[in-house]
Amino acid sequence: MARRSSRSLISRYGADTAFMTFVALLMAFLYVPIWVLITFSFSSSRSLTWPIPGFTLDWYRKLFANADLQTAVWNSFYVATFATLLALMVGVAAAMALHRYDFPGKTLFRRLILLPITLPGIVTGISMLNMFSLFGFPLSLETVIFGHATALLGVVVTQVYARLQRLPRSLAEASGDLGATPLRTFLYVTLPNLRSAIIGAGLLSFVLSFDEIPVTFFLTGRDNTLPMYIYSTMRRGVTPEINAVGTLIVLASLVLIVISVVVTRDKRS
């Protein structure tokens, strides 16, 4: 008996070590490439060779002098802001509809609105491109906004709907019993309770829109968003400037992650 338990202790210890090693390797797989990106943004050599010959900030200096890049960043901010706002407006309404009402075709409605999460962006992009060109709508940043909002609806609906389901129904009922109209109940009872879910969904939508290529690729006119600009630079070859932009993007993402963690945590207490 004693021998058996000691053997199981050893096998358990072995399993733990194996798992730890595996987790460490997985983390290395996920994060070593990101460190490589950051490291090479400071490399003084134009080619990406190891070891790094020297340290420089030239690539960053070049970025800040690059007018095309700055326009692209500005365009991305414009697109991501309005796409997020639209996706939030439509998405919160859709989540409310799914939560509150029963109507014929509800399953189909839910499935359609969640479809763009799994549907490759290229289908959204191509089909909307065809529609816009059929109806004689010129392609612009605004058509990109509609494309992004459509692609992001599912993200907003999933997050807001999940929160709605955790809200006790009695809150809205109490508000109704006290004579509040549905609109007032929504504005003063439901919406404040959804606040962190909406902010979280909004941040995620913003990041995804800021980063989006497949839909943008087909729906943009002459204007470039940041990822489109980076993509077209990449096609010409690999440069440390891309690493420098990339490092700044990683930094910005980090800030947004921290914000989203803080925002979604304050509700839990």
Binding site: I34, V36, M234
Partner: peptide, 10 residues
């Protein structure tokens, strides 16, 4: 949250 494009480019 980190750019999809960058993760492919890396």
């Amino acid at each position: 949250w980190v750019s999809y494009l960058l993760r492919a480019y890396i």
